[in-house]
Simulated scan of single mutants.
Amino acid sequence: MTSSLWNSLADQALAGELPTRDDARAVLQAADDQLPAQIAAAWRVRHHFWGNRVRLHFLLNAQSGLCPEDCGYCSQSKLSLAEIDKYPMLARERILEAADRAAALKAGTFCMVISGRSPGGRVFEKVLDAVREVKARHDLKICACLGLLTEAQAHALKDAGVTQVNHNLNTSARYTPEVVTTHTFEDRVATVEQVRAAGLKTCSGGILGMGETDDDVIDLALALRALEVKSVPVNFLIPVPGTAMADVRTLDPRRCLRILCLYRFLLPSQEIRIAGGREVHLRSLQAMGLYPANSIFIGDYLTTQGAAARADLEMIRDAGFVLETPDGAPFDGDPFAAIPESYPRAPLPLLEVR
């Protein structure tokens, strides 16, 4: 295999054409010595649409645990025995404190997440109230991740000031029953369609490394493309002790980078975000992930810790990238101004290095 195939895939992506399935499989199955050429080709596509900008998202777990779903990957699932904090909807003051931190970290998007199948009436009203307060206080785009939504709820979120709604497909239609039984792939697709119909930006991605096949990886990306999803978080499974997938170990840094390259070829203009598992699985190669992807979470995830914010900003700067403001322009100023030299972090989950 030579770099000519990867450059051909970049040319096709820039022309709006889909690669063949065989070529898509080839990206995932290529030898390690092909990885630099793959990254270089994916960078051509990423740079065409996003330049050298990196978009930051800040995640708040506004309601943790207490979920009736049985997702095998999730530490908040009803079947999970993982030791996590469980709490109902945070008070408005706590949410505003988190939004203050998101603004200080130069995040362009504040992502508010609640656990559960779908939001009840009282919780949903609290979410709407919090969104209005955050919008009045900060120039932040707001993403809501609330589970399954109706069309009326999607419109209410937009009216309150939500910019986009996250609802991950998580995996392919074929593999979904192996991951969860309390909802279907079609349930998740329906929510993404409701979000798009309401005029909100769609944010949907997946969790890779759950035991899926290469074709499942490809099919997930094709489903996201068919739904015209605009923002694609790519999570890499953290096998948390106490979850059904605690013993699943299928990823290494090079596999993660090949997935990111493939997704850039299949989803050329989309925002591709390296989400949960970035620090655990990419490890010393995290900066390389920014060549196919153009976005990361800064701070923590739902029930696991992320890297220190200063370390992430240094990584972005050292690799020659610049931060992106909420309106899409390069950030003008010192992104380190409000970031302390260090702050205490809980340890990352320890996994066997493969």
Rank of each mutant, 00 (worst) to 15 (best):
D214P: 00
D214L: 08
D214K: 00
D214C: 02
D215R: 00
D215V: 00
V217T: 06
I218G: 05
I218D: 01
D219G: 01
D219N: 12
L220V: 08
L220Y: 10
A221P: 08
A221W: 04
L222P: 04
L222A: 06
L222F: 12
L222S: 07
L222I: 05
A223H: 06
A223F: 04
A223N: 13
A223Y: 08
L224T: 04
L224E: 05
R225L: 08
A226I: 11
A226C: 06
A226G: 05
L227M: 10
E228A: 11
E228P: 02
E228H: 06
K230D: 15
K230M: 09
S231W: 10
S231L: 02
S231G: 04
V232Y: 04
V232C: 03
V232P: 07
V232G: 01
P233H: 06
P233N: 07
P233L: 00
P233A: 03
P233Y: 04
P233W: 02
V234A: 15
V234D: 06
V234T: 03
V234R: 03
N235Y: 11
N235Q: 11
F236M: 10
F236K: 04
F236N: 02
L237F: 10
I238E: 01
P239A: 12
P239K: 09
P239Y: 09
P239E: 02
V240G: 01
V240P: 01
V240Q: 02
V240K: 02
P241E: 12
P241A: 14
P241W: 00
P241T: 13
G242I: 15
G242M: 13
G242Q: 03
G242D: 12
G242V: 13
T243L: 01
T243D: 13
A244I: 05
A244M: 07
A244N: 09
A244Y: 11
M245H: 14
A246W: 14
A246F: 13
A246P: 01
A246D: 15
V248Q: 09
V248E: 09
R249G: 00
R249K: 08
R249S: 14
R249T: 07
T250I: 02
T250L: 03
D252S: 04
D252E: 08
D252Q: 00
P253F: 14
R254L: 15
R254Y: 14
R254T: 10
R254D: 12
R255T: 10
R255W: 05
R255V: 07
C256Q: 12
C256N: 09
C256A: 12
C256S: 04
L257T: 13
L257M: 13
R258Q: 14
R258N: 11
R258V: 11
R258H: 10
I259Q: 11
I259F: 10
L260D: 05
L260V: 12
C261A: 14
C261G: 13
L262Q: 06
L262G: 07
L262V: 11
L262N: 02
L262D: 11
Y263E: 00
Y263F: 13
Y263Q: 06
Y263V: 09
R264Q: 14
L266G: 07
L266D: 01
L267R: 13
P268C: 00
P268W: 05
P268A: 01
S269A: 15
Q270E: 10
Q270K: 10
E271C: 13
E271G: 03
E271N: 14
I272R: 05
I272P: 03
I272D: 01
R273S: 05
R273C: 15
R273F: 07
I274Y: 07
I274M: 14
I274S: 03
A275R: 05
